[in-house]
Design a protein around this nucleic acid. Structure first.
Lengths: 246, 246
DNA sequence: TCTGGCTTAAGGTTAAACCATTAACTGTTA
DNA sequence: TAACAGTTAATGGTTTAACCTTAAGCCAGA
């Protein structure tokens, strides 16, 4: 019997799971969100009330709230009428998380840019097809703002990012817009240092933004793709300082 | 003087920033990670030691660790020689966060699938160009496994996801692979229920996987794009149960 | 009618204690 | 000598209770 090394009780006993209490609370809240019982804008009970509801200490509840907050699911306000409020969905938090992981995973700028190229070029057909007059007006406006900023020597990567994010919205696909917006978080970081090295780079960038807007107005997909392709390629060079040849 | 409504003290006083102490700690750790002072596998000092280093209470340190953990930057082990360890970069956590935000943002399945189509189709040129023999072998192997699972009526979405994730790795671009992998997290969830409704759908799916692998082996981009295009379109139908016509 | 102060409800932080888990050591025993 | 059992120490997990800070609302006095 015992000689087999595996008794007949094999499989009877499962590894006991003892997750953190705070994690259990987080999961409960997530379920409520998924099921629609909690929607953006809703306010969770106060910490002290949650203690009683869950039968745990306030510290534990607070840890759960920290996790939910870090996940971008709630924002917390202090003071009277404060508390944990379900956030309207925002990509900022996820973008930040993505940025952290990107910096940790030793991604080369070339890889990031290549990926960005795929997504932003891939979005162009939808954009060209679906952009409304309002969309196009907004793009021209942003391009002009960029131009003005360049003239005042006040061009920043944020202005460029705003254009790209607005451009993504022209596809009228929220998931796609969120994705591209997320990408521009990490890009911002990488570029922030590049800006020091090439402060005057805004000139051609805004120029291309304008040409991009024009191509979309004319519903000229090929032209848009051409400009975007060049635009991102130049970004890659800036980011890498030409150090990476990949 | 006072009639102007703005006194001469304008601009003298700046808004005082009082961020959470735990957030300050998180930021410090992130900087260390960014600067390479901390790399995956490293262990942070114990909670009690961090208290002394930062001059704060243990609860505050723990909140910071919760945030870092939720961001996927560290994993925490209990017991002797436990502690907070810098994680090797993993997309799982980000994918999970993405999934949470997706469920909250009322994205339609159509939007998600459309985005997935852009990314996965956009990746194909790179894949066809860069896939190694090992890559191709792995793809065929996964396709066969799927086939076998179908025969045993044991096909799951996880098997399909594994194929798509492995396929993404064939592009030899880590950023792109992470992105696609992140997307398959949320997809899994949406599909898990769809599986109930269409348990027999695996047949054509695995068939397409095999044809995809063949097209890549032949470096036939057009064929690969054709198959992938159809494949994702059918996924869209499954997810939406045909309820959304978009 | 403004201003300042008070109240109150909420999150932010601290302190000290205790529990649970894990790895390593140690000593006994067959 | 090898295996087992007990002990110890390091470390995260949780609780409790107290106090601080913030913000909204109210109210009385100049």
């Amino acid at each position: 019997m015992a000689a087999t090394g595996r008794s007949t009780t094999d499989g009877l006993f499962n590894r006991v799971n003892a997750p953190r209490v705070s994690q259990v609370i987080v999961d409960q809240v997530k379920v409520l969100i998924r099921d629609g019982a909690l929607t953006p804008g809703d306010r969770l009970p106060s910490e002290r009330e949650l203690c009683q509801r869950f039968g745990v200490s306030r510290v534990t509840v607070r840890e759960a709230l920290r996790i939910l907050e870090a996940s971008g699911l709630v924002t917390i306000r202090v003071g009277a009428h404060g508390g944990a409020f379900l956030t309207a969905p925002s990509t900022d938090r996820v973008g930040e998380g993505l940025a952290d992981l990107l910096t940790m995973s030793a991604l080369t700028a070339g890889e990031v840019t290549e990926t960005r190229k795929i997504v932003e070029l891939g979005a162009l057909p939808l954009i060209v097809e679906r952009a409304t007059d309002d969309d196009i007006d907004a793009l021209f406006k942003l391009a002009e703002e960029g131009q003005a900023a360049v003239d005042e020597d006040a061009y920043t990567v944020d202005i460029s990012a705003r254009f790209h994010i607005r451009l993504a919205e022209c596809a009228h696909n929220t998931a796609l817009a969120m994705l591209i917006q997320s990408f521009h978080g990490p890009m911002l970081m990488s570029l922030r240092e590049a800006r020091e090295h090439a402060p005057a780079m805004g000139k051609r960038g805004t120029d291309e933004h304008r040409r991009l807007a024009e191509a979309i107005r004319e519903r000229d997909l090929a032209a848009a793709q051409h400009v975007m392709s060049e635009h991102i390629a130049r970004t890659a060079q800036r980011v890498s300082h030409g150090a990476e040849q990949d």
